[in-house]
Design a protein around this nucleic acid. Sequence first.
RNA 1: GCCCGAGUGGCGGAAUGGUAGACGCAGCGGAUUCAAAAUCCGCCGCCGCAAGGCGUGAGAGUUCGAAUCUCUCCUCGGGCACCA
Length: 854
Amino acid sequence: MQKYDPASIEPKWQAAWEGAGTFEAVRDPSKPKYYVLEMFPYPSGNLHIGHVRNYAMGDVVARFKRATGHSVLHPMGWDAFGLPAENAAMERGVHPEAWTRDNIANMKQQFGLLGLSLDWTREFATCDVEYYGQQQALFIDFLEKGLVYRKAATVNWDPVDMTVLANEQVIDGKGWRSDAEVERRELTQWFFKISDFAEDLLTAIDHLDNWPDKVKLMQRNWIGKSQGLKFGFERSDGGDPIEVFTTRPDTLLGASFVGISPDHPLAKELEAGNPEIAAFNVEARKGGTTEEAMETAEKLGFDTGLKVRHPLNPDWELPVWIANFILMGYGTGAIFACPAHDQRDLDFCRKYDLPVIDTFFALGDDTPVTDTAFVPPKTEKVRFVDHFTGLAEVTGQEAIDATIAYAEEEGWGEGLTQFRLRDWGLSRQRYWGCPIPVVYCDTCGVVPEKKENLPIELPKDEGNKPIDFSVPGNPLDRHPTWRHTACPKCDGPATRETDTMDTFVDSSWYYARFTAPRAKTPTLAEDAEYWMNVDQYIGGIEHAILHLLYSRFFARAMEVCGHLPEAAIEPFDALFTQGMVTHAIYQTESADGRKQFHYPEDVELRDGGGYLKDGTEVTIIPSAKMSKSKYNVVNPLDIIGRFGADTARWFVLSDSPPERDVEWTASGAEAAFKHLSRVWSLCDRIDAMDTSAPGDGDEDLLRQMHKTIHDVTMGIETFGFNAAIAKLYAFTNVLSKSKASHGAQRQAIMALAQLMSPMTPHLSEDIWANQGGEGLCAEAPWPVADEAYLIEDSITLPIQINGKRRAEVTVSKDLPKAEIEALVLSQDAVKRALEDRAPKKLIVVPGRIVNVVI
RNA sequence: GCCCGAGUGGCGGAAUGGUAGACGCAGCGGAUUCAAAAUCCGCCGCCGCAAGGCGUGAGAGUUCGAAUCUCUCCUCGGGCACCA
C-alpha cells in the first residue's frame, strides 16, 4: 500500500496543467465568460497564510466555473508601488525597484507551489513602465475631461525630518522616526473629482445585489449625502461674511459661537496681525490629519474677538472662535456651534464657558442639557421650544425643512445637498510611485505631458550617483536633471511635477488592464467588452471603502474617456470579503511585568494549557491578528513543506465561514492532512474489491453521492466552503464504511475527487488518473446530481409540545394532513402531555414539523 | 469621537423562523501492537442513577414555535480618506 505523498504528486500535476495550458484565458464566444479576481497582493516578499486563504477561495470559484462550462479569466499581478519599498531602501540601502523585483520573484515561486489555476501569461506589476505609462495616459485623459484638478490640501508634516508623513507614520501624534510632534500643513496637490460622481456612486449602490450589505452600508455612509443650509454670518466689523454649512439648521437658535478652522482664510488673515493667534494656530495644527485624530484630540479654541450677527436676530452677536476640531477640507471650514444639541460643541462650550441654550426637548422631558447633548431625532416628534416657525411639536426633519424654507424666503441662506465624500487627493511626495505626467512652464502654466512623450519613467539613480533614501525628502525633487524638461506647448524651459501618484490609483484600474495586459493603450475595446465586468471579486474587508469606491469612480471616469464600455462602469458584479487567518499568541510575563512572546513550536499544548520546555505555563490569547512582533505568524511554506499545498488549501477553507476570521491551529492542519491521506487511500481499497457482484448498499451509496453532489455544488455557489467541506467529510465517512459494489464505489470515489478538486486539485487529479478518469480532472465537466435520488419517500417529522421537541414520527411524504394529525395524537408522549384534554391548537407544517399547543 | 460587524459545547463552527450543536479538533473507552506511533470501532452540551429538566453574551418583546426577527444593555473585533 502506497502512502499519500504530496511532495511527488503536486509538482507532477502542476507541470501537467502548465503543459496543457489549462488555465490560459481565451475569448471563446461559444461559452459564457467568467472573470474571477482576487485583490492582487502587495509584494512584501513572502507568502502569508492570509494570501493562501484569499487565493484558495478565488481558485475554488475559478476551477468550479471552468468545470461548469465557463471560459474563465483568473489573472494575477502585483500591487508593487508603495511605502514599504522606500522603507526597505532607507533601512538597507537597496533600491526600491530591486527590492520589489526580488520580492515578486520570491512570491511568484511561492504562489507556484499552491497550484492555483492562474493565467500567468497576463501577469504584470504596477511598477512596470508598460503599466504605469498607460496610467499616465489615463491621467492626461482625465485632465482633459476636467476630472483632475489642483487645490490646497492638508498633510502631516514632520518638522524635524522636514517631510510629509503618511497617517501610518504618525504614532500618537508624533513622527515615527523623529518622534517630533506632527503638524498639519497645506500643500497644493492634485485631486480626482470623485465628487462629480457622488450622486451616481450613491444611487448605483442599490443595484449591487451581490455585494455584502455591510460594505454597501459603509459606502453609503462614506459618501454621506445630507441636506442642509448654507448661509453667511454678517460680521459686525463689516468684513466678508463667514460662510457656514449645517445639516441641523433647526438648532440655529441654540447657537453659541461661530467656529473656524485654523486653516480658514480668515484665521490666516488674523494670524498675520496677531502673534497670539499665530501661536494658537501653530498649536491647533498639531496632531495628525485622520478623522480619528481630529475627533479625539483635546479641544482647543481661541476667541478672535470678532463678532458676527445671528441671521434670525440682528441684535444678537456671536463670538468667532478658532477651533482645532474644524477641518478646512470639509464643508466651508466654518461652523456654528450649538452646544445643547451637539456633544462636541457642548464639550467645547463647557471648557471655554460659553452659553448653552436649549431649543429642543424630548416629549415629556424638559430637563435642560447639562453634560449630555440632546440630539433632536429626525423622525420622532420633539418639542421645539422657540416658536418662530409656528410649530410646537415637530420631528427634527420638519424643523430642518421649515428653517431652510424660512431662510430661502428671507433670502439669507439656501438649502443645499452636501456630500461627506471629499475629492481624492492623489499627490504623494515620494519616489516609489507613478510620476504625475504634468509640466510647469513659466509661460504656459500647468501643461499635461504629450502622450507621445509617455511613459515618464522614474529615474533609476540621481544622475551620477545612486539615490540616497536616508536623506529626507523626495529624490525626484533633488534629482539634478530629471525634473528639467521642455514645455510640451511652447518648448521653452519647464519643470516636471515631482509628486507621484497614490498607490490606490494603481489598484483602481488593474482589473481592466488584465483584460488586455499587453495593449499599447490602457485597454482594448474588444477585450474589455468580452471580459468585463469582474463576475466575482474577492478580498479583505479592509478595502470595503477606499479601494472599492476608487475603483468604482475610475471605471466611470474611464468610460467618460472611452476606455471602458458603458456596461462596465460598475466593475465588480459580485463582491466577497473574506476574513483573516489568526493565530493564538503565547505570552509570559517576567518579574518586572514585561511581556514576552513565544513561538508556537516552543510551546507544548496539553490539558487545555500551554507550557514551555522548562514547565512554565504560558498565557494563551486566542485568535489574534498575526504579527511578527507577537511571534504568532505561521509560515505557509512550512505547512506546504510538511503536508503539501492541498492540505494548506483544504484547511484554510474548512472550519470557519469564509467571511469570518479563521484561527490557524497546528492540530487542525494535521487533521486536514490525515483526512486527505484517508481519501487518497480509499483508492487502494477499490482495487482490491470484487468487480462482479452488485452490492446491497449500492442504492444507498448512490443516494448519498447525489445528495453530496447537490450540497457541495450549492455550497460552492454560495461561498459556503466550510459547509461544503463538512459534507465531503460526511460522504467520505459513508464511503469508507460502504459495502456497495466496486462499480458503485468507483463512481462514488470519482465524484468525491471531482467535488474536492476545486479545493484539493492535485489530490483529485491523482485519484482521477488512478481510477482511469479521462483526460485531466481540471478539464472534466462538473458532476450533476440526479434529482431522482434526492427525493425521499418517507420523512421523519419532529413533534413539538408547546414548542419543545418531545417525539417524532416517520410518515410517507404525501400522507394527508388529517392522517398526520391523528397519528400525532396517538403518540404516547403526546397522550401523556395532554392528560385526556384536547389540544388548544395543532400546527402541522407539511414536510417540516408538528407543534401541539396545550 | 463617529460608522460598521460579531457573540452558539473544552475549542473552530452547523442550523437564517421549524429536531440546536452537522462536520472537524481536543477528550474518554475499546480493537490492533511486545510497546508506542499510525490506523480502525464506539462515546462525547450541562445537571441528573434515572425519569426528566436546563441550554445559543445578559434582559425584555413579537410568534403555535426564536441562535435566527424587534428593543435595551454588556463584551470583543474592524474601518475612519497619505498602509496596502
